[in-house]
Amino acid sequence: MSQLDRLAGSAHAIEVEGLVKRFGDTTALAGVDLAVRPGSVLGLLGPNGAGKTTAVRVLATLITPDAGRAKVGGYDVVREAHQVRQLIGLTGQYASVDDTLTGTENLVLIGRLLGIPRAAAKARARELLDAFALSEAAGRATKTYSGGMRRRLDLAASLVGHPQLLYLDEPTTGLDPRGRAELWELIRGLVADGVTVLLTTQYLNEADSLADDIVVIDHGKVIATGTPAELKAKIGARTLEVRPADEVDVRTVVAVVGELANVTPEVEGGLVTAPVADPELLPIVVRRLDDAGVVVAELALRTSSLEEVFLTLTGHPADEVAEEGITA
């Protein structure tokens, strides 16, 4: 069967059913279902310890699941692992480049391992280093690279073999805002080329800005799925914060915000917060508070943190975030 027939045979580039993976007493995946359409970006969103990386490792054939099945490009990740490996590129916290080699050597190494002849492997390395603004550092050992340069090289390394599917496991964790913006631009370029992307992230805005579909997971289970718009409508992707100048007005603010956002706002130390789906709400809130004669000391509409999304979806805070930080 040719690759195209296989893809035509299944509507999805990645199909996952009831995936279970345990490590000792810990259940990393407790029955996960996923489906990724060819050419789309799926954002796998969740806190540290939610099972995102475990899912990627199963799909990258690095570990075998305890139960359930997963198909990538129509091939089973356990029985047809070698075929799967020919379709994928992996970038992330667990797939790294060699510190002691130069940028060029790292990419040539992978090209050679993929069976590309030496001259072509070198040309491919040059092409990727150019595209990722690493030409100047091409001859330097990777250990001298900045965090952003390393991530770009990691990404380039996963592209040497022209993968049809790209796994990006927390590609921007630990990067500064500029590095993150640069990497987002690169990822958008890849998506425009038609590659299918599985992206894991702890950042709601990252999934929001890059993904076509989002799957939220927690404790190894899928707790929400949908397009960014659907999820935002469901959970309120933004958080409105209002602090009246006079604490006496808190009750009025709660009433106004509660009515407009259609939720019960939280009050903490004179600050009223509420999740809102529609940014258009802000001017209306301002007008209504003005009408009510409330003087506002602080007013903000910000992107909800993952913490707040979790609170909305599960009713419990994403405690792992606080415990483990962003080191893993």
Binding site: R57, L62, R85, L90, A95, S96, D98, I110, L113
Partner: peptide, 10 residues
């Protein structure tokens, strides 16, 4: 993590 990258290759 170099080993994981190698093992993800065919």
């Amino acid at each position: 993590g170099v080993f994981d990258r190698l093992r993800s290759l065919p």
